[in-house]
Simulated scan of single mutants.
Amino acid sequence: MDSCRAQSFDIEAPADQEYSSGQPVNLAHLRRYTLGDKALEDEVLQLFLTQLPLTLAALGSAATERDWKIAAHTLKGASRAVGAWRIARMAQLAEELAGNESKARSEVLAKLDAAASEASRFIQQSEKLG
């Protein structure tokens, strides 16, 4: 293997570690990417908390299938990056919804809202403790 080749990072959770932390956000996963830098971790989590409601709103107001898929994909990537695996898995399901399945979309949005609230509370609490 060429040592100059760029290293790739897989931000999908290994199946056996997806919920190993038992928390809405796997902070150990995030720390792998921040190299234990608490200030950077806090900054990334704050960006996630800021973007989360905006991305959910974009998903909820998506007028076209393209808009829906872009918002779901964005949410999936951001959630995977911080280790919010439950949100990431639901965002992937949302991304895979075909056409305008309004009942299925409503259901996934409700589940995403609940998971996002849980993750937000967890992040805010962990920042108070950290």
Results as ranks from 00 to 15, higher is better:
A84G: 09
A78K: 04
A78V: 02
K38P: 00
N100P: 00
K38G: 00
G99W: 13
E65S: 13
L52E: 04
T64E: 04
N100Y: 06
L30A: 05
P14F: 10
K69W: 01
M90S: 08
G77Q: 03
E107L: 12
E101M: 07
L109W: 02
L93S: 14
Y33E: 04
A39Q: 12
T34S: 13
D37N: 15
A104P: 09
L52D: 03
E95K: 08
F48V: 09
L40Q: 03
L97G: 07
E12R: 14
Q92A: 12
R86W: 01
Y33P: 05
A57F: 00
E43P: 01
Q23G: 00
G36F: 06
P24V: 10
K103Q: 15
S106M: 11
F48S: 04
L109A: 06
I70S: 02
K111C: 05
L56R: 03
D42G: 12
A13L: 03
L93A: 14
L52W: 06
L109H: 08
A98W: 00
R80V: 11
A94F: 08
A81R: 04
L45M: 03
K38F: 00
V82Q: 09
L75Y: 06
L45D: 01
L52I: 02
A110P: 09
A104G: 09
A104V: 03
A15G: 02
L27Y: 05
F48W: 06
R66K: 13
A104W: 04
L47Q: 12
W85F: 13
A15M: 10
E96A: 14
E107T: 14
L45H: 05
K76I: 04
A88D: 02
H29S: 11
A114M: 12
S102A: 11
M90C: 02
A15F: 08
E101H: 11
A110H: 13
L97D: 04
P24F: 04
G99D: 11
E101C: 12
A57L: 07
K38I: 11
D42F: 03
R105S: 01
R105A: 01
A94R: 05
A71Y: 02
L93K: 14
E101L: 09
D67S: 11
N26D: 15
N100G: 00
R80I: 11
